[in-house]
Simulated scan of single mutants.
Amino acid sequence: MKYWLLLAGLFMLSHSNASVVGGSDSAFNYEGSRFEKGGFILHFTSNETTFSNAVKKRMVDAFFTVYPVLVRDFNNGAAKEVYFKVDTAYHGVAATGGGKVVYDPVWFVKHPGDIDVVTHEVMHIVQDYGRSVGPWWITEGIADYIRFKYGIDNEGAGWKLPEYSDRQKYSDGYRVTARFLAWIEARVKKGTVKALNTALRNHSYTADSWREVTGKPVDDLWLEYSKNPAL
């Protein structure tokens, strides 16, 4: 009898430890509103009652795939607790501030494959520039460069960087600036994006930062890029 009691006790102990070890890293209940894994927490709410469960699942998975890597690579001090809200009152694609991202549900009805909107937006949380002296186009250009490099399904969304055109300017922001940054990383100085990102977050960015990082002013870099823009 004591033998069986001992076995039963060991059985209960092993299962209790398994639940503790698995803890927040266990399989998600995607119908929930709070998700935790690896020290990161995501709160997901929606006031759109017909919002796709499949899209929600992909958004949650994208967050836990991409965000911890971006925090590791660009800002270890970034928020570990993030809030996503799908909001029928918001009309755009997405917007980010203070560790919170709001999404337009209509966008995902029209573009259900555009999951890397998540990648772009959570990079804004990692950037954490606050009242930065940097221009908007660098902020958005870096976020789209990150989408280009870290995105999990840009192809599925039909999203890509544009080919160079003489109508473009490096200050166009978003994908135009992102491609310019990708060219600099490939052809001029690897690590430029990380260095600019750090300068912006530390509020030490100036127009001279491009020269300090790459050895060349931004206008000279753009001129070289315009002559040979191949990545």
Rank of each mutant, 00 (worst) to 15 (best):
residue 5 L to A: 15
residue 5 L to S: 13
residue 16 S to C: 09
residue 30 Y to W: 08
residue 33 S to N: 10
residue 34 R to P: 03
residue 37 K to W: 03
residue 38 G to S: 14
residue 46 S to K: 04
residue 49 T to E: 06
residue 52 S to Q: 04
residue 54 A to V: 05
residue 56 K to L: 01
residue 65 T to A: 11
residue 68 P to W: 01
residue 71 V to K: 05
residue 72 R to H: 15
residue 76 N to T: 15
residue 79 A to G: 00
residue 82 V to P: 11
residue 85 K to L: 01
residue 94 A to Y: 09
residue 100 K to R: 08
residue 104 D to N: 04
residue 108 F to E: 00
residue 116 D to H: 15
residue 118 V to M: 08
residue 119 T to Y: 11
residue 120 H to G: 02
residue 124 H to K: 07
residue 125 I to N: 03
residue 133 V to N: 15
residue 135 P to T: 05
residue 135 P to F: 04
residue 147 R to V: 00
residue 151 G to D: 10
residue 152 I to K: 13
residue 155 E to P: 11
residue 156 G to T: 05
residue 158 G to V: 13
residue 160 K to E: 00
residue 161 L to F: 07
residue 161 L to E: 07
residue 161 L to N: 09
residue 164 Y to W: 07
residue 165 S to R: 08
residue 166 D to R: 08
residue 166 D to K: 07
residue 168 Q to P: 00
residue 173 G to H: 12
residue 174 Y to A: 15
residue 176 V to E: 13
residue 177 T to C: 02
residue 183 W to T: 04
residue 183 W to M: 12
residue 186 A to W: 03
residue 190 K to C: 11
residue 199 A to N: 10
residue 202 N to P: 05
residue 204 S to A: 03
residue 209 S to L: 05
residue 218 V to R: 02
residue 219 D to W: 12
residue 222 W to A: 01
residue 223 L to Y: 06
residue 224 E to T: 07
residue 224 E to K: 15
residue 228 N to R: 05
residue 230 A to V: 12
